[in-house]
Amino acid sequence: MNIREALADNLRRYRQEHGLSQEELAHRAEIDRTYISALERCVYAASIDVVDRLATALGVEAADLLRKAEQPRQSDE
C-alpha cells in the first residue's frame, strides 16, 4: 500500500465514522467536494497543508490520515 492509498482509505474511514458526507467534510476543511472525492479515489496527491486541514476537520492527527494499515505478518513456517 502506498501513501496515497493509505490517505484514501483513512480519509474515507474517518469521514464515514464521523457520519460526514464528502460535501460536509469539504465545507469543514474549506476545500472543494470534488477534491475530497478525488483524494478518496487516489486521483490526486494531497499537499501537507490539505492533509492538515482534513485532519483538523475530522478531529484526528494528520499522521492518522497517512498511517498505512498494518500488514499481517507472514509466518516463517
Rank of each mutant, 00 (worst) to 15 (best):
Y35S: 11
L58F: 02
T34V: 11
Q16V: 05
E17F: 06
E24W: 02
I31S: 12
R41F: 07
C42L: 03
L25P: 01
Q71N: 13
L65G: 06
Q74P: 08
Q74G: 08
Q16L: 13
N10Y: 07
V43S: 10
V50M: 14
N10F: 06
G19C: 00
D9W: 11
D9I: 11
V51T: 11
A57K: 02
V60D: 00
V50T: 15
S47P: 04
A45Y: 13
D52P: 04
A6F: 04
Y44H: 15
R15V: 04
G19D: 03
E5H: 15
D76S: 15
H27N: 10
I36T: 03
D76Q: 15
Q22V: 00
L20Q: 03
D52K: 02
Y14N: 01
Y35M: 14
E23F: 07
A45N: 15
D52M: 07
P72M: 09
Q16N: 11
I3P: 02
I36H: 04
I3H: 08
S75Q: 11
L54I: 05
L7A: 05
N2V: 00
D64P: 01
Q22W: 06
A8Q: 04
E70F: 09
L58Q: 02
E24D: 14
L39K: 07
D64Y: 06
L11C: 06
P72C: 05
H18A: 10
S37L: 05
L65I: 00
D9Y: 13
E30T: 11
A45D: 14
L7F: 02
I36M: 00
A8F: 02
Y44V: 13
N10K: 04
A6R: 00
E17R: 04
A45V: 14
E40L: 07
T34G: 07
S75K: 12
D64S: 12
Q74I: 08
D76C: 08
S21K: 05
L25E: 02
R4W: 11
R33P: 03
Q22A: 09
A29V: 01
Q22C: 03
A46S: 10
Q16A: 12
P72A: 11
S47H: 01
A55S: 08
